[in-house]
């Protein structure tokens, strides 16, 4: 089903690719990080459409990061696609298991139970000295189906991979959200009991959504690990998860493109806040967050679509 959104996403891909290739390296790197984290936020969007927010996405993200790092260091796997497959496998498998428990919860309990699990992973990683404890460890330079780019070309290759994957993932999720299973999410948010009366298991639907969110976070984690070249337990800490939720609220849930857009804005905002007010950047970020929550309840995407509608009139 190729609809306007898919064309829009394709156009966005071309713009991002164009921008990324002419931009300075640091901006390209920022874009890679933003897109990778955007995928985690996209996972949150899938959950939020079903009325669920998780304060523990760092768990799946961290699993992806560590799967990629460990596969390289212990198994000698450097192929980016194989790492992606491993990262997805790791995060979805754990999500499948924990999902039996997590899918029973809603609202704040869902958010907090997720957080508890991510904090347990954090605790385990901090205790594991083979994995460098809190210092983490460096990830091997990736190869791409046998192609080992030179140091100069590596950044471009990782960027190309990230941008294309973001596009593919966004289209897939767009299709999923448009399907019956996708819409069930919104039905669950509105009234779970009625969903059950219709003969659908809300728990199973939530379980699947969790696994989708975990897979997306796993991809984001693997790409982050490849791009940064280093993993550490901070990636599973609750503040990292909180950051994802922050970006999700900033973006809004209006479109699958929103998380990526929000993520890019967030990274840019933060890096400039860091540069221009190194002593009060947290305050600046907090203030932006408050303003968005108060004045843009639907996130930045709602502002964008509102202005577009305005033009149409």
């Amino acid at each position: 089903m190729i609809d306007r959104t898919v064309w829009g996403l394709f156009a966005a891909l071309l713009v991002v690719l164009g921008a990324g290739f002419i931009a300075a390296d640091w901006a390209q790197f920022l874009l890679v990080l933003a897109l990778a984290k955007g995928m985690v936020v996209l996972g949150l969007l899938v959950l939020m459409r079903a009325g669920l927010v998780s304060f523990g996405q760092g768990l799946w993200y961290g699993l992806g990061c560590y799967a990629a790092g460990m596969a390289g260091n212990f198994l000698g796997v450097t192929d980016a696609f194989l790492l992606l497959a491993l990262g997805i496998a790791a995060s979805t498998t754990v999500a499948f298991i924990l999902g039996f428990l997590l899918s029973r919860y809603r609202e704040i309990f869902f958010a907090l139970l997720n957080m508890a699990f991510s904090m347990i992973l954090f605790g385990v990683l901090v205790k594991t000295s083979v994995l460098g404890s809190t210092d983490g460890f460096n990830v091997l330079t990736p190869t791409f189906l046998g192609y080992a780019p030179s140091e100069a070309a590596l950044g471009d290759t990782v960027f190309l991979l990230t941008a294309v994957i973001s596009f593919v993932v966004a289209v897939l999720i767009h299709w999923y959200l448009g399907s019956t299973m996708g819409f069930i999410g919104e039905a669950i948010r509105e009234n779970e009991l009625r969903v059950e009366y219709l003969g659908v298991s809300a728990r199973r639907a939530v379980h699947i959504k969790l696994m989708i969110a975990a897979a997306l976070s796993g991809i984001g984690g693997v790409l982050t690990a490849i791009a940064v070249g280093h993993v550490d337990p901070e990636m599973t800490y609750w503040t990292t998860s909180g950051e994802f939720v922050f970006v999700a609220i900033l973006s809004g849930t209006g479109s699958v493109a929103a998380p990526f857009m929000g993520s890019i804005i967030f990274e840019v905002l933060r890096t400039y806040a860091y540069e221009y007010s190194p002593y009060t950047w947290q305050m600046l970020m907090g203030a932006v967050m408050l303003l968005v929550i108060i004045f843009l309840p639907g996130g930045l995407w709602s502002a964008l679509s509102r202005s577009r509608k305005g033009e149409g009139k």
């Binding site: 927010v53 609202e107 002593y279 947290q282 305050m283 970020m285 967050m289």
Partner: peptide, 19 residues
């Protein structure tokens, strides 16, 4: 507003107060 949104608002206040 949604409980979660208010949690985030307090998170924002937390960031501001930290600085």
């Amino acid at each position: 507003r949604d409980e979660i949104v208010i949690v985030l608002a307090t998170f924002a206040i937390f960031l501001i107060l930290e600085d």
